[in-house]
């Protein structure tokens, strides 16, 4: 009974103040569209840096007669294995024998390996650290090189650059999302304030004929919810269109392995709708307080 009354009150004033209602919906729409775009883009980029980080491995190359003058002894290899196994920074490591290394080489560069007289490649360990950030520590633990190890590489320059970029991108995404969230909250709150301010006389009259604060506030909050819902649903539809129509054209030109993924669309949509409902209802409710002191 009560609820029906509030709903009918909310919709009649939405219709009566159609221009402010549309303005509120547009504000939510713009804010949520940008936020959604940012979340999608940001999560994709973060996933991309994660992918790049996975390539950060430490390679331990053992001696061959070509490099050190003698082959690394199996004992020496075992000693390195034991060291790696007990290192807490190491997640996993795999042994690549001379033969496996040559197979790999043949696959990548068949023209070079085609007429090799014998296998010049060293056996090696490929070591994956627990976290890409620890790659330097893992490399450092093999310094100076143990007996039988020719060299340890981890692509110092590349590693540093990738880690820096990843950190910066993460920070930008976080700060940007927060700023965008605050900005759209303020923008929406402002629109609500304007709409309520233009109706402060109406609120005064309601209070003077004996309406309780909740009786005045509930329809306004419902209006906020309706505007928030409308705006965010349209934003989600636009984002979906962008994803389906524009994205394939762009993505076609970027090399994108399968493990690079933005957050799933339903999740982003859910976040947007929840944020705007919350901002709509709470924003209206809080803004009302000032005008209810009659």
């Amino acid at each position: 009974m009560r609820a029906r009354l509030f709903i009918s009150e909310a919709f009649r004033s939405l219709a009566a103040n159609i221009s402010t209602s549309v303005a509120a919906v547009m504000t939510v729409l713009i804010g949520m569209f940008l936020l959604g775009l940012f979340i999608a883009l940001g999560s994709w980029v973060i996933s991309w840096t994660d992918h790049v980080k996975k390539d950060l491995v430490v390679n331990v190359y053992f001696c061959t007669d070509l490099t050190c003058g003698e082959e690394a002894a199996p004992k020496q290899i075992d000693a390195v294995r034991a060291g790696l196994a007990s290192n807490p920074d190491v997640r996993e490591f795999s042994f690549i024998s001379k033969e496996q290394a040559l197979e790999e080489m043949k696959k990548r560069y068949p023209e070079i390996t085609g007429n090799l007289a014998r296998n010049p490649l060293p056996p090696a360990y490929e070591v994956i650290p627990v976290d890409a950030d620890r790659v330097q520590e893992v490399a450092a633990s093999l310094e100076p090189a143990p007996a039988g190890v020719e060299k340890v590489t981890y692509g110092e320059k590349k590693a540093e650059r990738v880690l820096q970029v990843a950190t910066i991108i993460g920070a930008i995404f976080l700060v940007g999302s927060i700023i965008l969230l605050i900005a759209s909250t303020i923008l929406i709150a402002n629109t609500i304030r304007l709409s309520i301010f233009s109706r402060r006389r109406e609120i005064e009259v309601m209070k003077l004929v004996g309406a309780t604060n909740w009786f005045v506030r509930a329809p306004f909050m419902l209006e906020g919810i309706v505007c928030g819902l409308a705006g965010s649903v349209v934003a989600v539809v636009l984002l979906l269109l962008a994803k389906e129509l524009a994205l394939p054209g762009i993505m076609g030109r970027i090399e994108s392995p399968d493990d690079i993924q933005a957050w799933s669309f339903p999740l982003v949509a859910l976040i947007l709708v929840c944020v705007s409902l919350l901002v709509g209802a709470v924003g209206s409710g809080i803004t009302m307080r000032r005008f209810l002191r009659i």
């Binding site: 004033s13 109406e202 009259v205 003077l208 004929v209 004996g210 309780t212 009786f215």
Partner: peptide
């Protein structure tokens, strides 16, 4: 919280009518 009850028992009329215009 009781002020609305007071106002329901108290009709008021103003110079500027204070009607809801819509």
């Amino acid at each position: 919280s009781k002020v609305p009850m007071l106002r329901r028992n108290l009709g008021c009329v103003f110079q500027d009518f204070k009607l809801l215009t819509d």
